[in-house]
């Protein structure tokens, strides 16, 4: 009997030369950075893992009952306890002497704010868990409320620009430094715009026995106000402006950064996003906040030493280079 087009494509899906941890049919928005990030992370992690997932977009859009988009053991309990659940799973597996890796997933709300205490405890108790924070810089699932990860001056429904303020008054929490201060073996930031770099960091973290942490910048078309087709462009500019530096921290010390060849002005990044639209109004407060964000980017560039080297195949311009038949890096 001849194969129907749908049977053919189902067979092609099964024959794909990579592991799919996150299957199609999930309900993420068009161009979702977080869905892409989770797909990239799970692809590298493989099937021999257990995932504990905090409440958030990722949990909601992947598991609308009775369906699940996950193809690996995965569980959700509450917003605040992904790290605690992961700790317990890891302890149980260790007791059973099983080599299965444990991952914990959370958004920035579940990591920077609500699950922070559980995360700190997990790191302090040295559980062999990779915690991945998909950072889309606000509570997107509940309607775009500001989190402690929301960048300064961004508009959310709870930090609206207006007479009193130009978007969020406070700064983005420097979570990575706090994580680093736990003296864990490995913590890093990554971006969906640099998938090869992201997957390398996942591999690196999974090789280590002990607590590791990955902060993945995941643009949110809905919450940030950009087209779904711009997700990578926005993510790339966050890195290339210096607003979201990609760094690796071991035992509290910065051991590697993705250098910038030519830093882009922050306005290029901000102008793509509706959440920063008020910064382009013709008024002194807007100009001041633009300068403020530029100063924050310059500060990151100086603190992490992102500039000054010769052009490098793995810098923010070179790391995404492709050639016929695949990626260069």
């Amino acid at each position: 009997m001849d194969e129907s087009p749908r049977q053919l494509i189902a067979r092609q899906r099964e024959a794909e030369p990579r592991y799919r941890g996150l299957e199609s049919g999930h309900r993420a928005c068009q161009g979702c950075g977080e869905a892409l990030a989770a797909r990239l992370v799970t692809e590298v992690a493989g099937g021999d893992v257990v995932v504990a997932n905090a409440t958030g977009c990722l949990e909601v859009f992947t598991t609308p009952w009775p369906q699940s988009a996950w193809r690996m053991p995965w569980m959700h309990s509450l917003f605040e306890n992904a790290a605690a659940i992961a700790s317990d799973i890891e302890a149980a597996l260790r007791h059973q002497q099983r080599p299965t890796k444990v991952l914990a997933f959370g958004g920035d709300g579940g990591t920077f704010d609500i699950g922070f205490q559980a995360l700190s405890g997990m790191l302090e108790r040295e559980h062999d868990v990779l915690y991945v924070c998909y950072d889309n810089e606000a509570y997107m699932n509940t309607g775009i409320q500001r989190s402690s990860s929301t960048p300064h001056a961004a508009m959310t429904t709870t930090s609206p620009p207006g007479r009193e303020r130009m978007g969020k008054r406070h700064l983005k929490k420097d979570l990575l430094s706090i994580i680093g201060a736990h003296h864990i073996p490995y913590a890093a930031s990554a971006s969906v715009a640099y998938p090869r770099d992201l997957q390398r960091k996942v591999r690196r973290a999974l090789e280590i026995s002990g607590p590791t942490f990955l902060l993945v910048h995941s643009p949110c078309p809905l919450g940030w106000g950009h087209g779904g087709e711009r997700t990578i462009e926005v993510g790339r500019l966050a890195v290339q402006t210096g607003l979201f530096p990609l760094v690796e921290i071991e035992r509290g010390a910065v051991t590697a950064v993705m250098p910038l060849r030519v830093p882009r002005p922050v306005s290029e990044y901000l102008a793509l996003q509706g959440r920063f639209r008020h910064l382009f109004a013709d008024e002194p407060r807007a100009r001041e906040e633009l300068e403020h964000l530029q100063a924050l980017a310059d500060h990151n560039i100086a603190v992490y030493g992102l500039l000054g080297g010769a052009p490098d195949a793995l810098d923010a311009d070179g790391a995404d280079t492709v050639r016929r038949g695949g990626a260069v890096a």
Partner: peptide
């Protein structure tokens, strides 16, 4: 609980 990859039933 849900079956792994059962989201394929949803044609987005």
């Amino acid at each position: 609980w849900g079956e792994p990859g059962s989201s394929l039933a949803c044609h987005t």
